[in-house]
Amino acid sequence: MATVGSRSRREFLDTAWRWVAAAGAALAPLGVLGILSRAGGRPREIVLDPGILERAAREGGVAVEGVYVRVRDGVPDVLSLRCRHLGCRVRPDPARGGFECPCHGSRYGLDGRVHSGPARSDLLRPAVRRSGDRWIVELGADDD
C-alpha cells in the first residue's frame, strides 16, 4: 500500500510540476514582452529658442534635431523629419521643394503630405507648447 501511495504521490507531483513548468513557460515570454515594451525610452523634447525661430523666419525654415521648423504668424510650425516608410531622416529638397527620403526615395510636399512612395502617410506634426519666450517640441516614439 505504501508503494502505491508513494507512486500516486510522485505522479501527482510530476503532474503538478509539469503544469507549473507549462504555466511558467507560457508566462515568461509575456513577462519579457511586458518589460521590453516599457523600455521604449522617454519622449524627447526639443527647445526652440528665439534665435532658432528668428533663423527659421528669415530662411523660410530650418532643420533642427530631426524636425523642420517654420514660423507662421509668430508660431512655430513643426514637422517631424522621420520618414513614414521605415524611419530614415528625410531632408529638405530645395531644388524641387518639399522633402525627400534618402533611403527609398519617398517624397513629401512642404506641408508634409506624401507625394510619392514607398511611404504611404504624411510626415507627423509633433505637439508644440510655449514656455516663456521659448517653444518646446514634444517628440513621441513615432516622431523621433
Binding site: L36, L86, P102
Partner: peptide, 24 residues
C-alpha cells in the same frame, strides 16, 4: 544611421514581437 533606422523599421513590422525585439 539610415541602416539603423531601416533595421528598426523592418523589425517593428513583425507582429507582436516587433517593437520589443527592436528594443532588445
Amino acid at each position: 544611421l539610415a541602416a539603423l533606422a531601416v533595421w528598426r523599421g523592418v523589425l517593428e513590422t513583425i507582429p507582436l514581437l516587433g517593437a520589443p525585439l527592436a528594443t532588445l
